[in-house]
């Protein structure tokens, strides 16, 4: 049963992710990205990471992708002006990623590692949200603070970009 569910989610994720790149209409691309986000959230649920699943939908599907759609609809990019000049970059990145995938597949088939059952059992015992909170504010406090600092910088940058006169006013 679990394998079937995983196979379903995995197939849809891979298909939707390729559709994002292949489809010509940017609106359809954004929609297949939405389908992909939903199925990634589904994978999280099967891993008992309900909190992550909900955050995945709220942040990515609910906020970021809506803004994408917003911009795509407002700009109405013309067919010719779209991303035609990126062949070289795409080739380079594709080769790197493909090599990585092949290497991973080969190394995985030699060393069959049993997955570490540690954190999942603990997460089930006290509840997923609590365990994430405890780990985030103790073990990973430093990365957490760095992330918040980066977000703060981005926020200040957005304010400065949108208020052009703010620097010259003095």
């Amino acid at each position: 049963m679990a394998t079937f569910v995983f196979l379903y989610f995995a197939t849809v994720i891979v298909t939707a992710a390729s559709l994002v790149v292949v489809l010509r209409n940017p609106i359809y691309s954004a929609l297949s990205l939405l389908v992909m986000f939903f199925h990634v959230a589904g994978l999280y649920v099967t891993l008992h990471a309900e909190f992550l699943a909900a955050i995945q939908i709220i942040v990515y599907a609910g906020a970021i992708l809506v803004l994408y759609l917003f911009v795509v609809m407002l700009l109405n990019v013309k067919r010719e002006e779209r991303y035609n000049q990126q062949g070289t970059v795409a080739l380079f990145l594709g080769v790197v990623l493909l090599t990585e995938a092949v290497l991973l597949a080969v190394s995985r088939s030699f060393a069959v590692a049993t997955p570490d059952p540690g954190p999942e059992g603990a997460a089930k015992a006290v509840g997923n949200t609590e365990s994430i909170g405890e780990v985030l504010y103790s073990t990973y406090l430093f990365p957490f603070e760095i992330a918040s600092l980066i977000l703060l910088v981005a926020m200040i940058g957005a304010v400065i970009l949108s208020k052009k006169g703010i620097m010259e006013s003095k």
Partner: peptide, 18 residues
């Protein structure tokens, strides 16, 4: 009775915007 009920509702109301 899921343990993330509030987030569940917030997640789906944000989908309505689509």
């Amino acid at each position: 009775d899921i343990n993330i009920g509030v987030l569940y509702i917030l997640a789906f109301t944000s989908i309505g915007a689509y």
